[in-house]
Design a protein around this nucleic acid. Structure first.
Lengths: 307, 307
DNA sequence: ACCATTTACGTGGGACGTAAACATT
DNA sequence: AATGTTTACGTCCCACGTAAATGGT
């Protein structure tokens, strides 16, 4: 039972003529004749009654062609789906992202994937790096993006550093802080901080930057993974916002927020892609990843210069 | 895209191991490896991530195997159906039969086909020979059975004479006729005749046998294609029944009817199978025909000896 | 004699098996 | 060393094309 023979026999059934059928399937007419004979032999009954000026499908042949037609239809469908799959235009792509980047990167990324690969079904997990790692290893997702500092290198992981996103402290225009000269980190603390969810590991580093005594944490009084919400709140009160420049580019441009000129070492996030070693990314995932990189380089382009 | 390759790749997916998969599909392991490689090349993406102690299906591969499994399932289904079709165990068989034989032959035939080929869908036309011929030529049926005397030989027909069924005149036991010695045909006429539908051509011949003057027909006062009905009627009144011996064997055995010992030349029907020249009978039809012949020879065996 | 299908014959590519190489534990 | 996959190489078969034969109008 061979696809080719089915196609050949169907061509004869459709054309009612070996010569035309042969040119339709692009082989010589004798070859077609033999192929059909071989198929008939294999089946055990005749498909055609050969007249002198015409070829007629037998009763058994008609029953056979009903099956064959449906089968070839399914095969064509499958081939189309596989084309889509090969090009990353269809299929299901599961990936993850840390909450820190779910604000600036993720929405742009999703929009662009939706535009470029509308056939792709995406399944996104926004969660902490431990959760993401577990589910990556369980092969619930193909890759995830997270701050590289949260991920411990391991044999079974491929960690690709994608880019460094700098960030800073923002406040509303007209904030009392802005009137002071030479602002130092401790001066910020009384106003309270707003920020996306900050993992413990990073919080420790932040505490050092702000020269806090051990055991005391940065006073993050508002923690929320929705950057829009944070901007809305901070624009209307004296809270200070810790965030990447990229996430706030739009708000800064609109004049809703300004960067606080404080003497701090640079703040940054090192965004990385983490996937399993030895596991092939699906074509869809490969293109999603390309899109992610494109969005990241766009964001780098819009990055506000550190003051 | 080749069935074999699909089967091979699926075996690897199922076994998670090239060696076991190779013996499952009965080829050498290197051959299997190459076949899978070729398939992957053709598809444009990897199906498996080859580890050192295991083989894992890729994400794209999983999507592919969903398609492939369904397709191979359909193929197996189709092959099973084709087996049935080849053996005449499934399919639709359309055939026809003249009303004269629909009484004795047809029910036995249908019962036997139902028993032997339960998968066959039968479509039976009981009708006159002109109707049957038209619909045979229109390929609405594969063959029909009829009295050969009603069918005019033609180039496009294959007429196979199957057997000759003799018949006679029957009446109820105790019928007044039976009391007379040396019954002659004209003596029968006053009682009136019952018979299955008799075609005009045969009626002319019957008229001659009964020595009727031209223009006068045999007085068939009850014409009905249900032999059971005819028997029921004739058993309770003085009508005479013209029929094949075979159709009345049962009634005669039960003592419901007896043959009238009249000096008539033998009455008979020449049953023939008529089909189109150059058209192949489906396997189902071939077996139905075999069954018909078997039934006919059974009937010949039960044939009542002419008195 | 023409039209269409089938047979005859020679060729090339592909699928196979055996054996060896390679990779990892 | 053991296990498992890939590469190398030689063989055979099958599908193909060209050309000739067959068969029916």
């Amino acid at each position: 039972m061979d696809f080719k023979r089915l196609r050949y026999a169907l061509a004869v059934a459709d054309e009612g003529n070996f010569v035309r059928a042969a040119e339709r399937v692009s082989i010589s007419q004798p070859a077609l004749s033999r192929a059909v004979q071989a198929l008939e032999e294999e089946l055990g009954f005749l498909l055609f009654d050969r007249g002198n000026r015409n070829v007629a499908v037998t009763v058994a042949g008609a029953a056979f062609f009903n099956h064959a037609r449906r089968l070839l239809f399914d095969v064509r469908n499958m081939e189309h789906d596989l084309d889509m799959l090969r090009n990353g235009d269809s299929g299901r792509v599961a990936f993850g992202i840390g909450p820190l980047h779910s604000g600036a990167l993720l929405p742009r990324m999703l929009r662009q994937v939706r535009a470029e690969q509308p056939g792709i079904i995406m399944s996104v997990s926004i969660n902490n790096s431990n959760y993401l790692l577990d589910h990556l290893r369980a092969e619930d997702m193909e890759f995830f993006m997270s701050d590289v500092r949260l991920i411990e290198a391991a044999e079974d992981l491929i960690i690709t550093h994608e880019c460094r996103q700098y960030g800073g402290i923002y406040c509303r225009p007209g904030h009392p802080l802005l009137a002071r000269p030479d602002i130092t980190p401790p001066e910020l603390l009384p106003y309270g901080m707003a920020a996306p969810t900050i993992p413990d590991v990073l919080m420790v580093q932040m505490n050092k930057l702000f020269r806090l005594p051990p055991g005391r944490d940065l006073p993050v009084v508002l923690s929320c993974d929705s950057v829009h919400t944070l901007v809305d709140v901070v624009a209307e009160c004296d809270l200070l916002l810790i965030s990447s420049h990229a996430a706030l580019a739009e708000a800064a441009e609109l004049g809703r927020l300004v960067q606080v000129p404080v003497a701090l070492p640079p703040l940054w996030a090192d965004i990385a892609t983490i996937r399993l070693r030895g596991r092939t990314l699906s074509p869809g995932a490969q293109r999603v990843l390309q899109t992610a990189r494109a969005v990241l380089s766009q964001l780098a382009g819009t990055e506000m210069p550190r003051q």
